[in-house]
Structure formats: structure tokens, C-alpha cells
Design a protein around this nucleic acid. Structure first.
Lengths: 147, 147
DNA sequence: ACAATATATATTGTGTACAATTAAATTGTA
DNA sequence: TACAATTTAATTGTACACAATATATATTGT
């Protein structure tokens, strides 16, 4: 192993670790806001999708969130128990489960209306900077997923 | 809730989701290389730290990896079971557990010497781009953690 | 029609991740 | 010295995350 290789194996030179650490820390920042409403981060992003488009099925949700039924099935059962969504077997195709927001689930969106703005302040990131970062991340994501 | 607020609540406008998704996808890219050696991603980054500096204790590892003993204790026991590290109570301070690489653990570094380079190719990202991205992520991480 | 194949979700098992608590050892201080 | 406060790991409990498998339903090919 040469010097370059050894250098590249250092934790602080890993792009993957910067991503992993940033992702976790941002989610930690969300926690106080979400926990006060009894939600986890994953439950929150699931609601984000449903607030945009209600009545999606499990696999559609999974495609948007990059999660599979092994994660979503128990998660949605919890959201159902807290009466934020309903899981309904599709009459036309009994394999499919569609997920609908309840009134309570729809109303909850209002509670979080200013959360993205708050998080912006909390991270202290500039709008231009955030846009650039998100663009780069989406490009990277695109590269990876079309392999 | 106004239009701006509604727009900012869309999943695809969330910087946090871009980070979360990218982090997960990159880790997925690592999996084939790591699993073939019987390692998980978290075990791998733990070894990265130890290859740089052997004999750290649990809390020092946790500070570098942003993980606590609840995660590290079982993880290190697994690495010990596969004979890559040894966990040793410090004689001078019996509260402390120091973690040492075994010969097998040290040798394993060689196996991964070209992995960072391989991952670069896999992600199709340019060096300049990667540096810029990592810089932005570290800056964001710094902002968050000094709150 | 019906066997083979494909699809959608659920289940099982393993491994993080982290908050909260516990237990043991050490340090600070009256 | 005693003893309260602190520190370090380990433990407990909950919730993802995902691979692998199972199950039920739907579709396809003959």
C-alpha cells in the first residue's frame, strides 16, 4: 500500500463519512420538533410524501423514499395506530395496500409549516449554499442510481 | 400555510432528504466490497479510525465516529468475535476499555487499500467536485455541532 | 382453463442508532 | 478520610434499514 492509498483510507478524507455524519446530525436537529409531535424522522418524510400526494401504495412510497416494505410496513402500522393514516387494501388488486391520510394526518401538516425555515436558521446555511449543495447531492444520487 | 411554506415541505425540496438518501446509497455501494470480508459499513469506518490510531478507547472512538457506547459496545464485541480487535480494560482506569487491532485486523487494511479509489470510479464523481462537496459538508457539520 | 411466472406486501433475522438508565470506578471536596 | 459528583461503559428499550424468505394475488403462456 502506497502513501496515497493510506492517506485516502483516513476517516476525514472519506466523502462517505462526511455524508453519513451530516445526515445523522441534521436528523438530530429535527428530533426535538418531531418528537414533540410523537414522530420519528422517517415517519416525518413519509408524511411529507403523503401531504404532496395522498393515497399512494407501499411500493410507490418506497420508490420516493428509497425504502422497502420491510421498513415501511411496520412504520405505517405505527402511523395508523396514532391515527395519522389509514392502510386500505385495494379492491381492484388485493396485493396492493394504499395509504390515506386521516383528517388528523392532514391537519398535522399545518403544525410543520414553518419547520423547513426553522431548520434553515438552525443549520446557519445560506440559501445559495444550500441550493448548490442539494444540486450536487442530487447529481451524485443520479450517478449512483443509474448504474 | 402559504404557497412558499407548502412548497418547502415537498420531499424533493428537502436538503435533509438529499443527504439522507445520498448517505444510504453510498453505503449500499460499499456493501459488496465490505460484505465479502464479513464487515458492515459501521464496522469498516471503525476500522478506518483504528488503522490511523490504534489503542483508542470507546469514547475516543465515539467522538471521531459520532457514535455512543450503545452502538459501539456491541459492534466492537462483534469485531472481537471475528478476531479483528481486542477489547482491554485499562489497568490505570478500570472504567476505560481500550481497543487494539489484532494482527489479522492490521492486515485487513491491505485488502481495502484500493477501495476509496474504486468507490470514486463507482460514483462517477470528479475529484474537484468531490472536494467541493466534502468541504461544504464539513462546513455544515461544523455549523451544526458548534450550536 | 390452468400451470408457471411475476408482483405486492408482510415477515423474519441481523445490525445499527440513540435515548435513558445502570453500575462501577475515579475525582473533587468538605 | 468520607462522600457527593463525575466519568466511562454496558445495558435496556424502541425504531429504523435492509437482505432473504414467505404468502397471497394477479398475469402470462399454452
Amino acid at each position: 500500500m502506497n502513501w496515497d492509498e493510506k492517506e485516502m483510507l483516513k476517516l476525514d478524507n472519506q466523502l462517505c463519512f462526511a455524508l453519513y455524519a451530516c445526515s445523522k446530525e441534521i436528523i438530530t436537529l429535527y428530533k426535538p420538533y418531531l418528537n414533540s409531535q410523537g414522530l420519528t424522522y422517517t415517519q416525518y418524510i413519509t408524511l411529507l410524501v403523503l401531504w404532496e400526494e395522498d393515497g399512494l401504495n407501499i411500493s410507490e412510497l418506497g420508490n420516493k423514499l428509497l425504502l422497502d416494505s420491510g421498513t415501511l410496513t411496520p412504520l405505517l402500522k405505527k402511523l395508523e395506530k396514532s391515527q395519522l393514516v389509514e392502510r386500505v387494501r385495494d379492491r381492484d388488486d388485493e396485493r396492493v395496500v394504499k395509504v390515506y391520510l386521516t383528517e388528523k394526518g392532514k391537519m398535522l401538516q399545518e403544525t410543520f409549516s414553518d419547520l423547513p425555515q426553522k431548520m434553515f436558521w438552525n443549520t446557519g446555511i445560506q440559501v445559495e449554499e444550500a441550493i448548490k449543495l442539494k444540486t450536487m447531492l442530487n447529481q451524485l444520487l443520479g450517478n449512483i442510481r443509474k448504474l
